[in-house]
Computed example of a mutant assay.
Amino acid sequence: MRPLAGSRAMDAVNSIIEIAGPLMLGLASGALFRKFVQPRIFAQLGDRARRVTSATGTWSLVVQICVTLGLAAACHASNAMATLMWMHEHLPPMPFPLTLGLIHWVFLGATFFSGYYLALIPSSEAEEEQSASGTV
């Protein structure tokens, strides 16, 4: 009985690492993009940057986060088989095989982009205005 309990504990730790790894990598990538690349892009956009940093832009990020979290939940290992069955029943034939490995990679990508988009959400209106004006 002892090894089985240890195995369950390791499975739980591996599951947490599998979720937290891509999420943290996405958060770090998004934060670095927001700190170093976004100000340069906004400086080139000039007055047109207001559209990107408006409340509509923030809401679109929230929608993207919801979509990627839903995709990650559908492709998680606990739902992967049901998602694969649904895809085979409802989608037209793909030029590549739909496998559990592919579903796993979609899960990792969706988890990464959830963190990435989360890091791009402005933390305050002052920060939005500052980034729109091109100053850091």
Rank of each mutant, 00 (worst) to 15 (best):
M1T: 08
P3G: 01
L4Y: 03
L4D: 02
L4K: 01
A5M: 02
G6E: 07
S7M: 08
S7Q: 04
S7D: 00
R8Y: 00
A9R: 04
M10R: 04
D11Y: 01
A12Y: 02
A12E: 02
V13Q: 00
S15F: 07
S15D: 11
I19K: 05
A20R: 02
L27A: 05
A28V: 15
G30I: 03
G30R: 00
A31W: 14
A31T: 15
F33H: 01
R34Q: 12
R34N: 14
K35A: 14
F36L: 11
P39S: 00
R40W: 15
F42L: 09
F42N: 15
A43C: 06
L45G: 07
G46M: 14
G46R: 13
A49Q: 14
R50S: 13
R50N: 14
R51C: 12
T53Y: 09
T56M: 12
G57K: 05
G57Y: 08
T58D: 10
S60G: 09
S60N: 12
L61A: 09
I65M: 13
I65L: 09
C66M: 13
C66V: 12
T68C: 08
L71D: 08
L71N: 09
A72Y: 07
A74F: 02
C75I: 08
C75T: 11
A80G: 01
A80C: 03
M81I: 04
A82Y: 00
T83R: 09
T83F: 14
L84I: 10
L84Y: 05
M85I: 13
W86Q: 03
E89K: 03
E89D: 15
L91T: 07
L91F: 03
P92Q: 06
P95V: 02
F96H: 05
P97M: 06
P97A: 10
L98V: 15
G101H: 04
L102D: 06
L102T: 04
F107H: 06
L108Y: 03
L108G: 04
T111N: 05
F113Q: 06
Y116H: 14
L118Q: 07
L120I: 08
P122L: 09
P122G: 08
S123V: 14
A126V: 02
A126N: 13
E127S: 11
V136E: 02
